[in-house]
Design a protein around this nucleic acid. Sequence first.
DNA 1: TATCCTTACGGAATTCGTAAGCATG
DNA 2: CATGCTTACGAATTCCGTAAGGATA
Lengths: 335, 335
Amino acid sequence: MNFQQLRYVRAAVHNDLNLTEVANQLFTSQSGVSKQIRDLEAELGIDIFVRRGKRLVGLTKAGSHAAEVIERIIHEAENLKRLSAQFVAEDKGRLTIAATHNQASYVLPPVLVHFSRAFPDVEVEIRQGTPRYVSDMLLRGEADLGIATEALDEVSDLATFPCFDWDHVVIVPEDHALARLPAPSLADIAAYPLITYSRDFSGGSVVVDAFDKAGLSPDLRLTAMDADVIKTYVRLGMGVGVVAQMAMVNGPADGLAVVPQSSRLFPHSSTKVALLKGSLLRNFAYSLVEMLAPHIPRKVLTGARPLPPLTEGLASFAQRPDLHFNWNAALHAEE
Amino acid sequence: MNFQQLRYVRAAVHNDLNLTEVANQLFTSQSGVSKQIRDLEAELGIDIFVRRGKRLVGLTKAGSHAAEVIERIIHEAENLKRLSAQFVAEDKGRLTIAATHNQASYVLPPVLVHFSRAFPDVEVEIRQGTPRYVSDMLLRGEADLGIATEALDEVSDLATFPCFDWDHVVIVPEDHALARLPAPSLADIAAYPLITYSRDFSGGSVVVDAFDKAGLSPDLRLTAMDADVIKTYVRLGMGVGVVAQMAMVNGPADGLAVVPQSSRLFPHSSTKVALLKGSLLRNFAYSLVEMLAPHIPRKVLTGARPLPPLTEGLASFAQRPDLHFNWNAALHAEE
DNA sequence: TATCCTTACGGAATTCGTAAGCATG
DNA sequence: CATGCTTACGAATTCCGTAAGGATA
């Protein structure tokens, strides 16, 4: 049994049991992958995969149990590497953040400015996608931290921490009639074509649900993944937009107006930071979580790991209040 | 990074950092051990061990963190093997039980008779020693289950389950004066030389503590690790013995008498079964725990594992009430 | 001096990748 | 017939153990 074999099995499970794909992804030959997996099966004395002819078509019962354990072994091996890196150069390394467009564009910028000032030797990589993509990246171990909305709470292998609450607002062209009403209702808004987030973004369903609950079925003219697209079409007069508050506060708002009191029309949303349970992260990653969610007690954060984490790293951070970031101040500075 | 390297590091930590010893224990050359460890340190970029000249004298800070993670990796790798064995031949294999003499001699026999009838293809190996030895065997992964007294509760990496309570009794030669009193007190007993368990057996301290608390300091003439030795010397008239109840009920009692009401003189003791947290055991091992502690809800038992265990094995066992063993009946059948 | 770790080096075992074979859809 | 797994086999790499070197207590 060796790590290579375990990695191959893991990759096969994550890649539709396509060994050719696995070989490409891991930069090796597919014959090697095939052989190593067969060797492992022979050593363990079990079939991990169900084969039909020469094709892998599923996991055996033993295989699916094995896959779970293999996942943990590889995960711990990665923890070992991260742990070592932590001691080699405490504040140097790479941090991969998976985030939705909204978070990446309007929430992360001020925080990351602060972060990169505190950790100049950390390369930050942002990967953007749907909430589902964010959780997948975390589960696959390809991202260290994930930033999205409540959707992450539903993934049981992730530890999520709330950062802050925010609202959706209704936006219209500056000269639009709705901008002049003191407090338009949902019904007033539903009279116009609507432009908002796609349904698979949690924001999307929050907005639509609010109209549903009020017994309204607005004309959902266009849905998009990001606020910039929505704003563009609103500017063009294609309809009334509903976007996250931050997109107007922290982003360009020229030619647009926020409909008065419109933030009260929808339930609060919440930005969450998530990490894979059992992950031993680099010190600077924990620091970023602290910046995003300074109110989370440190012990809760480290509790995401079933067994004791790198306590020094965290303890030393606790002694550096200069690292704390008041994102609320930053977010609303321009208001 | 490979498992061999991790095993070497682990073994070094468990063997006083003596690589020669590690090599002997793992049947390899010490030069190989040395090289592999150095390779691992090079790959991780950290020193795991503190060296003075050419001697390993300690773990670095990074090393002690690494050792913890390595422990988990190897542990999960063993889980993977056990899991596979479980599917190859569900009720066939080997079960190593570490137990104190008392448990091995008077508690286990009736249970194991029952067990080996239910699982005829399981080889059972009993390893006997002090409570400390029992916990060490579990922590080192050399035993699957441990049976001892409360002493196991103090080891945080072990999950312990209470089996049943029992008492100590005072034993004397048949014709002894104490045997004729209706209910001798501790003071009555302390008038004679005492023979009981060694202090490092939890039974030992329970007995001595009871006298201490009563303000008595009896003449502790002899201490031994097992009841048979104690009984022998009591027969020879060397003193009054204090042994576990089971040693009289389930073991030979010829020539000896239990002092009336003497079980009330000492606090209750309790037999515990323990397993290493996070261990994925074979189905038959869980079955033995069930026989020993049938009142423990199955979910609590499997909860000893941080992540989902082999649920089929356990579920199928739950459907076989024939496997349940009433040890209380067995233990007291002769009464 | 006895113990014990490290390095060097040659042989053994493993792993890897190309190429060919063969089953599936 | 395009895709995809397996097997065979030679090349490359890695692993292992003997032996010598050097450091400590």
